[in-house]
Design a protein around this nucleic acid. Structure first.
Length: 424
RNA sequence: CGGGGCGUAGCACAGCGGUAGUGCGCUCGGUUCGGGACCGAGAGGCCGCAGGUUCGAUCCCUGUCGCCCCGACCA
């Protein structure tokens, strides 16, 4: 992608209501554009990042054996009446409005009320179980207070997984597998998530939250510094300095961002919708359910909160908008500049042919400092520079975003080394 | 929903009861060319919106809408 054509320019000045780090850097870097409180447009750079997060989530869900579906965001009142949630939590959380014919409608803030009746149409026998489905969709929540950029929006991306089981033992089995899948998602995105015990809320006593420790977190958790056993403060019986009940380590207090949570729903939804199956003895039994939420947009915001410096974002390779940020510099001599540009053009072609994604800063009117500052702000893992200097050495300058040091790589080896870098 | 802050050019901000300014960005010309360079010439505003006070309001008053922060609440 040529930077000169990219929709979404960097800005030297931060938004005046500079708020959280993720919001500031995303806006300044041209990743997102705010429409209203808690609602953002993803510009090309931002879309590439969130799509990569979603793709990682998708791979891990598929590996779990879950099947992807897509449910409607626009929903009628009736199923919500069945579970009592039209009024409780109702408008506290839901956007509710009238459609044609005075029909009550809502926008989905979660999908148990939709997935359960759908599953009921196809599940009759114990032979149909267990199985699981998921979707990746924008959720709508009428938050009393949207805040912190991508961390708490009114429309936000969510992956919601629902599992269906014969008995509790099978639900427990799947629940543990889902935990591991979640862990892998966070690891791959460059986040270290602790699994904290938490209140199950309205439906169940069983719940775990995935918490990423960071000063900008809005949850408080207690966690063992040794084995990472953790609890949300809401339910914790521990305090700073206590002994860990699992391993005897020291419990610490920390701020954290909740990037996912998982529930054993049991029969909370199968009961009202009468989602039952016939077992091998011909007896009708309720299906046991679990639900598992993970927010790609929140993950994206959290990654920035955790991985940035005073110059900008530091994307982990797995979710960076581009692996390489290639900068071509202009020289005193116009003829040299033309040659530099030709070399850079060729390098872009070769890298892209090798499957490497490249953001190519081809601007002719921008100076070196400006291009470097933008590269730092945007935060791609590897910056390559082609200039009069590198031309003379038949090399390209190599600087990783996480490092302060630059080195020269012979041009003939450049594509190969970038390929190696991509794999590491 | 309570408390606070802020709404003036694309962005960040100044300003003043008498028809609007700076920096950055943008356009044109020129000089520069490895960490946000410089010179010159331009374009760009219902001073958030509505009412009130006043001869006159961007400025004072009231209301309203929006954004941000703290709290209550939450993936």
């Amino acid at each position: 992608m040529r930077y000169s054509k990219l929709l979404g320019k960097t800005s030297k000045t931060a938004p005046h209501d500079a708020e959280s780090v993720n919001a500031r850097l995303l806006v300044q870097g041209g990743f997102v554009d705010q429409l209203m409180a808690g609602v953002y447009t993803y510009l090309p750079l931002g879309l590439r990042v969130i799509d990569r997060v979603k793709e990682i989530v998708r791979e891990e869900m598929n590996r779990l054996g879950a099947q992807e579906i897509l449910m409607p965001a626009l929903q009628p009142r009736e199923p919500w009446e069945t579970t009592g949630r039209w009024t409780d939590p109702g408008p506290e959380v839901m956007f509710q409005f009238k459609g044609r014919g005075d029909k009550d409608l809502t926008l989905g803030w979660t999908h148990e009320e939709i997935v359960t009746p759908t599953v009921k149409r196809f599940v009759r026998s114990y032979k149909d179980l267990p199985f699981s489905v998921y979707q990746i969709q924008d959720k709508f929540r009428n938050e009393p207070r949207a805040k912190s950029g991508l961390l708490r929006g009114r429309e936000f991306s969510m992956k919601d997984l629902y599992s269906f089981h014969l008995d509790e033992a099978d639900l427990d089995r799947f629940y543990e597998l889902a935990k591991e899948a979640y862990r892998r998602v966070y690891d791959r995105c460059g986040l270290h998530a602790l699994i904290a015990e938490a209140s199950g809320g309205a439906f169940t006593k069983y719940s775990h939250e995935f918490q990423v420790l960071t000063e900008s977190g809005e949850d408080i958790i207690y966690y063992c510094e040794k084995c990472e056993y953790a609890q949300n403060r809401e339910i914790s019986e521990y305090k700073e300095g206590d002994r860990c009940p699992k391993c005897g380590g020291i419990m610490r207090e920390g701020k954290a961002i909740e990037v996912g949570n998982i529930f054993k729903l049991m029969t909370r939804f199968s009961d009202p919708f009468e989602l039952n199956y016939t077992d091998a003895d011909g007896v009708s039994k309720p299906v046991l359910m679990g639900c598992y939420g993970l927010g790609p947009s929140r993950v994206m915001g959290t990654v920035i909160e955790v991985h940035h410096d005073d110059k900008g974002i530091i994307w982990p390779k797995a979710i960076a908008p581009y692996l390489v940020h290639l900068v071509s510099l202009t020289a005193k001599d116009e003829a040299v500049t033309v040659r530099v540009r030709a070399v850079a053009d060729k390098l872009v072609d070769e890298l892209e042919a090798a499957g490497v994604s490249v953001l190519y800063d081809d601007r002719e009117d921008a100076r070196a400092g400006e291009k470097f500052a933008d590269a730092d702000l945007i935060g791609c893992p590897l910056r390559l520079v082609v200039s009069e200097k590198t031309l003379a050495a038949d090399s390209v300058e190599w600087k990783e975003r996480v490092s302060a040091e630059a080195k020269m790589v012979p041009m003939v080896q450049a594509v190969g080394e970038v390929g190696e870098f991509a794999k590491k």
